[in-house]
Amino acid sequence: MFLINCPYCGERDQQEFKAGGEAHIERPKQPTELSDDEWAEYLFMRKNIKGVQFERWNHAHGCRKWFNMIRDTSNDEIKAIYKMGEKPPSQ
């Protein structure tokens, strides 16, 4: 059970949060210009890394804010947490 440092609320138990999959996948601004393959790449393809992964998390049972997390999936160490729209901190 992680202890997650919500950038808006501070440290809270993991059960208040919801994981939201891979981070930094931007919705294409002009979807109609994309081929089926390009759209499918955005829609379906996600990484599943053993190691350092960039993820989206939501403080679902708290402030409801989304934020980004860098987590090592092999040992669940949270390397960094930063707000939406911010650049990932250099590790």
Binding site: G20, E26, R27, N58, R64, W66, G85
Partner: peptide
């Protein structure tokens, strides 16, 4: 609500 918040906060801030 969760989905709408997601789009508002992450895609269309």
């Amino acid at each position: 609500l969760g989905k709408l918040e997601d789009y508002l906060q992450t895609e269309w801030p």
